[in-house]
């Protein structure tokens, strides 16, 4: 039997259902960005180090460049586009803006998803726990100072 090279998958992204046929080798991040046109999640490396593509898959924080789209078949995916409700920023997003926790904004969607995952597990993290929570996300602009402050403030 030939190996499967394409497959139809069904996913729920931010509460909306999608069914698409994808190449078996398609990365989840390319599926989200190129096929679903949800371009908030970004790509900053080839190696799973930078975390710009971080999303939640069935509630678990995932670097979506490290997962194939077909592995997400049937999953519930949360991306940065799902954080604000009716155009209103959520507390974490507002805190990022208030504390100047973003400059170019390229790492921000992934950073927000990591912080979201952290705060769901731990409602009042210490600074050390916050830094651990975002250690998989690289930011080249801020030195993380204001990101840590923003997450702390959002947890209070």
């Amino acid at each position: 039997m030939d190996p499967v090279s394409r497959k139809t998958i069904t996913v729920d992204v931010n509460g909306e259902g999608f069914e698409r046929e994808v190449d078996a080798r398609r990365l989840l991040i390319h599926f989200i960005r190129d096929d679903l046109d949800l371009t908030g999640s970004h790509i900053g490396c080839d190696t799973g180090n930078c975390g710009a593509c971080s999303v939640l898959v069935d509630g678990v924080l995932v670097k979506s460049c490290m997962m194939l789209a077909i592995q997400a078949d049937g999953a519930r995916i949360e991306t940065v586009e799902g954080l604000a409700q009716d155009g209103e920023l959520n507390a974490l997003q507002q805190s990022f803006s208030d504390h100047h926790a973003l400059q170019c904004g390229y790492c921000t969607p992934g950073m927000l998803m990591s912080a979201t995952a952290l705060l769901r597990q731990n409602g009042s993290p210490s600074d050390e726990e916050i830094r651990r929570g975002i250690q998989g996300n690289i930011c080249r602009c801020t030195g993380y100072v204001n990101i840590v402050e923003a997450i702390r403030a959002a947890s209070e």
């Binding site: 371009t39 790509i43 920023l89 997003q93 803006s97 904004g105």
Partner: peptide, 13 residues
């Protein structure tokens, strides 16, 4: 900030 924290920036890619 408002567009960037919502993933609504437009980068070339």
């Amino acid at each position: 900030d408002k567009r960037l924290v919502q993933g609504e920036g437009v980068f070339f890619d």
